[in-house]
Amino acid sequence: MKKNKICILLVLCAGCIFSSCKEQKQNREPVSYKTMTVSMSETELYRSYSASIEGNQYVEIRPQISGLITRICIDEGARISKGTPLFIIDQVPYEAALKTASAAVKSAQVKVSTARLTATGKQELYKENVISDFELQTALNSLGEAEALLAQAEADEMNARNNLSYTIIKSPVDGVAGMIPYKVGALVNPSISEPLVTVSSVNEMFAYFSVSENQLQELVGEPDEDTGFIENLPMVELKLGNGKLYAEKGKVTAVSGITDAQTGAVGIRASFPNPQGLLRSGSTATVVVPYKINGCIVIPKAATYEIQNKVFVYKVVDGIATSAEIKPFKLNNGSEYAVMSGLTEGDVIVAEGAGLLREGTPISGGTASAHHK
């Protein structure tokens, strides 16, 4: 009986050993994974910046005189042309002031004419030695005073005429009107805190955003001695609030020459055409700036895995998966990495499922290629 138990144990041990050997043999068989041979190429990555949108002209309309609004000539949000009447301020007191000033001019003209006749007569009498130098000089002084009063009256008339013209407030630019916080009958003056209305030109819109000094240098790259660096900057795109890309591409047209001492940011302005009027002053959007990278290796993110904020791939060396750390560019398009170091042209890597592999796994399979711009 005891011998039978020993035999059974021997058989079981032999079976376990055979099973273990069979499993090890199976583990040594290559696992099928897609692989790719890396090569040098170029890619374009993107960085996004929050931006505020303004028209290339944004004008606050304020009165130049005091008075009651008697008429509002436009609707809120209306498209208006340069010279379009916007508001009319009570004209009655200014018409009266102009009439008074015009009458003063006529009175001064009459006094000048009288003083000139007197001075002419005195000169004739002086030539005949009828009057003294004093009387002649007095007459000439009276003429000069009358002419000065006429000039002052004419200036007052011009000022009154200008004030009357200011009662019709016109748009200085083509654009779109904002909201109107005042109603007919409101008393306004040049020192009002809130403008009568704002008019913004919408044919061309500016997107204002900020970047760090390092980001600006990455964007600019190597300066061109023949042209300014702004001319060499790439076209940018605009992502609207609904997440969609704006149809028109923009161009960086200005870069601030001053860096904010507190934030280290540099202000940038990009210009976008706005033929359909979809962009509005005061709105927010996201400027998408492309970064073109030449002479780099581009691999799919599926070919990588991360450990403690480090990125690794599996190279296929002599048919065996061998881990290797890589340094990807800090930007990516969500599906690919631009590799700055860790791989050389001609290396074969596992293209998919790297996170499921283990060091030393035998690899076999077809090839795959990274898809990039």
Rank of each mutant, 00 (worst) to 15 (best):
Q64R: 13
S66F: 06
S32C: 12
I80E: 06
G55M: 07
S32F: 15
E54Q: 15
T35R: 04
A14G: 09
C16K: 06
T100Q: 15
A96F: 07
G15K: 02
T70Y: 02
Q26P: 00
C73I: 02
C21R: 08
A97Y: 08
T84H: 00
E54W: 12
S20I: 08
K34P: 14
C21K: 10
V59N: 09
G15Q: 01
K34V: 01
S50L: 11
Q24E: 09
V38E: 10
E23R: 12
D75K: 14
E54V: 14
C21S: 05
S32Y: 15
F87N: 02
M36K: 07
N56Y: 08
E60N: 13
E44G: 00
G77D: 10
S66E: 14
M40K: 13
D75M: 09
E76Q: 14
S66Q: 13
I72P: 05
A14H: 09
V92P: 01
A96W: 03
N56V: 08
E23P: 01
G67C: 04
G83I: 10
S41W: 09
N56K: 10
I74P: 01
R62D: 00
P63Y: 05
E44F: 02
R47V: 04
S32N: 12
K99Y: 13
Y94Q: 05
I17L: 14
P93S: 09
N56E: 12
I74L: 03
T100H: 15
I69M: 04
P85G: 06
K22C: 03
P30W: 12
I17S: 05
E54L: 13
V92M: 11
R79Q: 00
Q91T: 06
E95Q: 14
I80F: 11
V31A: 07
Y33H: 15
A78G: 05
G77Q: 09
I89W: 08
E76T: 04
S66M: 11
D90Q: 11
E76P: 01
I61Y: 01
G55H: 09
A96P: 01
S20G: 11
S32A: 15
Q64Y: 08
R62A: 02
T84G: 09
I88T: 14
Y46C: 00
I61A: 05
N56T: 13
I53Q: 02
R71Y: 06
R62E: 00
G55S: 05
N56P: 04
Q91S: 05
S52N: 13
F87D: 04
E76G: 01
L45Y: 03
M40Q: 13
M40C: 09
T35S: 05
Y58P: 06
Y49V: 03
I72C: 10
E54M: 14
Y49S: 01
E95F: 08
E29K: 15
S39Q: 14
R62H: 08
I69E: 00
T70E: 11
F87S: 01
C73H: 04
M36H: 02
E42F: 11
S41Y: 07
I61K: 06
E29F: 03
K25S: 14
S20V: 14
E76F: 03
G67Q: 09
G77P: 10
P85C: 07
T84C: 07
L98P: 06
Y49H: 10
P93V: 12
T43H: 04
R79I: 03
I88Q: 12
E23S: 14
P30R: 12
